[in-house]
Simulated scan of single mutants.
Amino acid sequence: AVLLGAKLENGEDVAFFKPVVNTEKCVKCGKCAEICLENALVYVKGQFPAFFEELCSGCAACQLVCPAEAIEEGRKILGEVYVSEVDGIKLVTGELKPTEARSPLVALKTKEKAYEIAKKESFDVILVDTAPGVHNPVVRALQGASFALAVTEPTPLGAHDLGRILDLTKQLGLSTSVVLNRADIKGGYKRIIYEICEKSGAEIVSEIPFDKKLLEAYIRSVPVVKLFPSSPSAKAILKLADYVSERLK
């Protein structure tokens, strides 16, 4: 959203359950610590349970098993979800707080907000952009998708990650096409990328060349197709947009 010039303002908090031990009610039985799979609650006989916030997953199992109802509900803010609009396009952006590691919940809440807006405003298409890799937030983003576009580049890391994401989308039963970014860099792994795609049955539908105009547009937070519509990268991106539009019909 920021790269499109959108302002992230008035975000909605993404929060999860955080146990708060009421020492006036706690009977020091230790059942909360026994049920905690993350070891976020530690019990020493005769003492109140100690809570380690960074380990907590927010499952609330401790609250359910407490016989004295001494586990009260606290809230921890993991991040925020923002809604903005640029050129008639509604943007829903999830932002994780610095130092936080629990991005799956933020990814889930961002998708839920996007679906809510799409239903309310009768949108036909939702485009979900996610982080590279195959970790939990990526899986969250792919769930419910009609098809996937895997963006890679002709580098050793790009080849490695592409192989993993194609394996993941295959397991999810998700049809996947590939976009090769910086396709013309010297000494690249372009041939290897094509071999990976051929082995996986995925088609490379677009090659975006290395283009300094794209970098300049990126720095200025303006889409390259608006700032430099005649540049090689802009032409490639517009062709890719046509492909996606046809694919969604």
Rank of each mutant, 00 (worst) to 15 (best):
K119G: 15
T155F: 04
G133D: 08
K28I: 05
K119M: 07
A202L: 12
A33M: 12
L55W: 05
A40W: 01
L162V: 03
E73V: 13
E53T: 11
A50D: 13
F52A: 02
E100W: 10
N136I: 09
D13H: 06
L180G: 04
R220N: 15
K7Y: 07
Y115I: 04
E12A: 12
V224A: 13
L3K: 15
A114W: 08
Y82V: 07
R102S: 14
A241K: 15
L55H: 14
Y43A: 04
A107C: 05
V27W: 07
K31A: 09
R75Y: 08
V205C: 02
I208W: 12
E54V: 06
G163F: 02
E153I: 10
G30W: 11
Y194W: 06
I71L: 10
A131G: 06
E72A: 14
C26K: 07
G144C: 06
D124H: 08
E116T: 05
Y43H: 15
L41W: 08
K28F: 01
G133A: 11
G158W: 00
I219D: 04
L8I: 09
S200I: 02
G187A: 11
I165W: 07
F228I: 03
L55Y: 12
Y194G: 01
A61T: 04
C59V: 01
K212W: 02
P154A: 08
K190Y: 04
I35W: 10
P104G: 12
L162P: 00
K7V: 14
C29E: 06
K97M: 15
V14D: 02
V179E: 13
A70I: 08
V151W: 06
L166C: 12
L142S: 03
L96N: 00
K249N: 15
E38S: 14
L37D: 02
K170T: 05
I71D: 07
D184K: 14
L96V: 03
E54W: 11
V92L: 09
R247T: 05
S103L: 09
L64S: 06
D211S: 11
K45W: 01
S233T: 10
I117P: 07
F48G: 06
T23R: 13
G79A: 07
I185N: 10
S233N: 07
N136Y: 05
I77P: 00
K190D: 13
N39K: 14
G163Y: 05
Y43M: 10
G30A: 13
R182A: 10
V2H: 13
D167Q: 14
D242L: 03
E153P: 01
R75G: 00
C26A: 08
A145R: 01
S122D: 15
P67D: 08
N10K: 12
V2Y: 07
S206L: 04
I193Q: 00
L96M: 10
V21N: 01
A202R: 02
D129A: 10
A241G: 07
